[in-house]
C-alpha cells in the first residue's frame, strides 16, 4: 500500500514537473506557493456539517490542480479529533468547534496555527410548511411538539444546550442523535416535528425542511477552525486546500451552504 502510494505520488510529480509551465497561471489563481504545481492525495478530516461545501471546494481544487486528489473523511469533530490523536494519518483537519481543534493542538498534532474560516449558527428545523406552527424555542416545550437534539457529546449538542440555557427553555427530546445530520434526517423523514440544527444544515436539506430562526440573544455562534496536521504527508497540498477554502470562491461556496464569514 505504502509503496504503491509513493509510486503514484512520484508519477504524479513527474507529470506535474513537465506540465509546470503550462499550469503556472492555474497555480497562481489558487494562490498556491510558488515553486511548481502541487500533486498527490490530500486527505481532509472535516466536521460532518461541512460535507456539501467541502465536497464542492474539493472539486474546485481538483479542477485547478489536476494532479491533486482531495479525499474526505466527514464525521463528528470529536470523533475526528480522537482518530487524529490516536494516530490516524491526515493532511488537514477542519473542526466545527474550537474545543476539538484545541485538543488536537494540545496533542501536538497540528503544524502551524489554526485559522477560523467560517461561522455557523443554530436554527430550529421543522417539517416543510411548518405544520406544527413552531415560531420560537419556547414552542418546542409544547406537549404536541416532538423534538430531537444532538447529543451533548458533539459540538452541535453543546451549542444547543447553551442556546436553550440562554432562552431559559428545558426540553424533553425523544432522541439525542450522535451527529447533527441525523437530527436533520429525523425531521426530514417526518419522524419528529422539530430538531435543532445548524443554519448550514437547513441549506443542505433543500425544500424537505424549513427553518425557524433563533434570535441572536439566544443563539450561539460556532467558529470553524482549519489547520494542516503535523503528520501531513502532503503539506503543500494541505496548504493549497486551506487556501482554496479561504479564497473568494471558497467563501462563496460556504456562504451558499449557509455558513457565515469568519
Amino acid at each position: 500500500m505504502g509503496s504503491l502510494r509513493r509510486a503514484v505520488v512520484v508519477g504524479a510529480l513527474a507529470v506535474a514537473l513537465t506540465a509546470c509551465g503550462a499550469s503556472a497561471d492555474v497555480t497562481d489563481r489558487a494562490g498556491a506557493p510558488s515553486g511548481g504545481d502541487i500533486a498527490g492525495d490530500v486527505l481532509v478530516f472535516a466536521a460532518a456539517s461541512l460535507t456539501d461545501a467541502f465536497t464542492e471546494i474539493g472539486e474546485i481544487v481538483e479542477r485547478q490542480h489536476p494532479q491533486v486528489t482531495v479525499t474526505f473523511n466527514f464525521a463528528g469533530s470529536q470523533q475526528l479529533a480522537t482518530q487524529i490523536i490516536e494516530g490516524a494519518r491526515a493532511d488537514v483537519f477542519a473542526s466545527a468547534d474550537q474545543a476539538q481543534m484545541a485538543t488536537v493542538v494540545d496533542a501536538g498534532a497540528v503544524a502551524g496555527i489554526p485559522v477560523v474560516f467560517a461561522r455557523n449558527q443554530l436554527a430550529i428545523a421543522v417539517e416543510a410548511g411548518n405544520p406544527a406552527s413552531v415560531s420560537s424555542l419556547r414552542d418546542l416545550q409544547r406537549d404536541d411538539v416532538t423534538v430531537v437534539l444532538a447529543a451533548e457529546q458533539v459540538p452541535a449538542g453543546r451549542y444547543t444546550r447553551e442556546a436553550l440555557d440562554r432562552a431559559g427553555v428545558t426540553l424533553a427530546p425523544v432522541s439525542l442523535e450522535t451527529d447533527v445530520r441525523a437530527v436533520l434526517t429525523k425531521v426530514a423523514l417526518g419522524e419528529v416535528d422539530t430538531g435543532i440544527v445548524y443554519t448550514s444544515d437547513l441549506a443542505a436539506a433543500g425544500d424537505r425542511v424549513d427553518g425557524v430562526a433563533i434570535p441572536d440573544e439566544h443563539n450561539v455562534t460556532a467558529t470553524y477552525p482549519i489547520a494542516t496536521l503535523a503528520t501531513a504527508e502532503n503539506p503543500a497540498g494541505a496548504q493549497t486546500f486551506i487556501d482554496a477554502v479561504r479564497s473568494d470562491s471558497g467563501r462563496t461556496v460556504l456562504k451558499r451552504a449557509g455558513f457565515g464569514a469568519p
Binding site: Q79, A151, V174, L176, E177
Partner: peptide, 23 residues
C-alpha cells in the same frame, strides 16, 4: 440508532453509549 434513536433509559443501548462516550 437509525430507527429508535438514542435516549438514555429508553433507547440508548450499550453500543450507542460506547459510541458517544468515545467522543
Amino acid at each position: 440508532i437509525s430507527f429508535a434513536g438514542n435516549l438514555p433509559g429508553r433507547t440508548q443501548t450499550m453500543p450507542l453509549a460506547v459510541y458517544l462516550q468515545l467522543e
